[in-house]
Design a protein around this nucleic acid. Structure first.
Lengths: 181, 181
DNA sequence: TAGTTTGTACAGTTTTTACTGTATAAACTA
DNA sequence: TAGTTTATACAGTAAAAACTGTACAAACTA
């Protein structure tokens, strides 16, 4: 096998692994392949470059590069004299992981807390209603306890997201370079 | 609106929120709805119970309860005299979150590290090959650096998973109950 | 301003995934 | 052992998602 082929194969292995694991970011394999391909390019790419490299339509490249950008896995780049939009992979992977939490998980936490607070308020109101029978009253009480439990859980999750966002996580789990060279 | 209706509506809101966010666990909304429904039941359920409550086929219930069990969101339960399999939601949501990392993210980290080490070894071998031209040699060198960077990243991610798994995360982000009562 | 180039909205198609119904194996019962 | 009950494998169908090609608006160029 020739040198260039060997390099290509070593890259392909990584790209395919990324493609098969990108679902953890809520993305489909082809977006992962796109990301992986871009990772090994030393220059920012245009949508047309991607179309050529991946053999997919420009429309697809456009939509998936947007999905990658939304998660801040990919960012816009500029190069003198190039009119087309240019994209490159964000080079801080630790930050990308943190961004996943800031974007996806925080959103989820917020949605949950809104719903929980609303339902909790309704049930607490209902528990004061003298017209509801005892059996139902008991059910309401149980549900209130359950909602308080999950409210505490999402509060915790929110604080966890904070800890990522403000980089405190690196105190507990420090970045260590070249541990096994 | 009658009492029981109000209770049901308060529950529905939570269930639907879970359904819409369960994709973070790699599950589809219907599995989230199933989980949410089970959360508000105070007794373990059989597959037939779920079929009835959700109006879906028993086959579906079987496959999605398995998916939920694989992520340890749901566990088997036993009740005297009941022959059918019984399931209940795991009641420690903090542990469920940790299990997500232990199961999905650790698997991903491992796959990545295997691929990276393999490719890195190949490229380091190739970089010693005197028959490859200088230009290619330069590319190889760049790729080796990139792979070392992401190896460090996945090492970090592995340590992060460890920190969840051995509960040390609770030192940094403690569980706090009823913070806003 | 007219003529290009570029990115994306949108409709249609292909592919994939979710879901159902039937068939069957395994476990239980009498 | 024969007869049930229960869970799931599997094949087929329905629904959803990914992907493509065309059309067009916005931005640029001359």
């Amino acid at each position: 096998m020739e040198g260039h082929e060997k390099l290509e194969k070593a890259r392909e292995r990584i790209i395919e692994t990324i493609a098969q694991n990108i679902h953890l970011y809520g993305l489909v394999p082809s977006a992962g392949r796109q990301y992986g391909m871009m990772f090994f390019q030393n220059e920012p790419l245009t949508l047309d470059d991607m179309t050529e490299k991946l053999g997919m339509s420009k429309t697809s490249m456009s939509t998936s590069v947007r999905a990658l950008s939304d998660l801040k896995l990919v960012e816009r780049a500029w190069k003198k004299g190039v009119r087309k939009d240019l994209y490159k992979v964000s080079d801080d992977w630790y930050q990308s992981f943190i961004d996943l939490f800031s974007i996806k998980w925080r959103r989820s936490v917020t949605l949950h807390l809104v719903a929980i607070k609303k339902s909790l308020a309704e049930l607490e109101e209902l528990s004061k209603d003298p017209t509801v029978n005892e059996e139902l009253q008991e059910e309401i009480k149980i549900d209130i306890e359950k909602l308080k439990y999950i409210r505490n859980y999402y509060d915790w999750l929110e604080r966890l997201v904070d800890v990522f966002e403000d980089q405190k996580i690196f105190d507990l789990v420090p970045i260590m370079n070249d541990s096994q060279d």
